[in-house]
Amino acid sequence: MAQRLPGPPPLELVGIADREHPRVVRALRFREEVRVWEADGGLVLLTAGGS
């Protein structure tokens, strides 16, 4: 596992609950847990579970 870098992240990540974004909808088809953050210029998705 990679070690975390020191200091705050270089981008501000804002947690969102939007389940209608196409990438979130697709991730939910294959994964049980989907967490989403919005950053300048895009989304960050972390998932767990699924097949």
Rank of each mutant, 00 (worst) to 15 (best):
M1A: 13
Q3C: 12
R4V: 12
E20D: 15
A27S: 14
R31D: 08
L46V: 11
H21L: 08
F30M: 11
T47A: 08
V34F: 02
L28C: 08
L28R: 14
V44K: 00
R35F: 08
T47P: 01
I16D: 04
G50D: 07
S51C: 09
T47S: 07
M1H: 12
V44H: 01
R23M: 04
R26W: 00
A48V: 09
E20T: 15
E20A: 15
A17M: 08
R19G: 14
G49K: 05
G41Y: 02
L13W: 12
V14G: 07
A17I: 08
V25I: 13
R19V: 13
A39D: 02
E38F: 04
L13K: 05
F30I: 06
M1D: 09
G49N: 03
P22N: 03
V34G: 04
L43G: 03
L45P: 05
R29A: 06
R29P: 03
P22W: 00
A39L: 07
G7T: 10
M1R: 12
P6N: 00
G49R: 04
H21D: 10
A48H: 11
A39S: 01
M1Y: 09
T47I: 04
H21R: 09
E38G: 03
P10R: 15
R29I: 02
P8S: 13
A39T: 06
L43N: 00
W37Y: 10
L5W: 07
P10Y: 14
R23T: 02
F30H: 15
V25G: 06
E12Y: 05
L5E: 09
E33C: 13
R4P: 14
P10C: 14
V36N: 03
L45R: 05
L13M: 11
G50A: 07
R23I: 00
P22Q: 01
W37A: 07
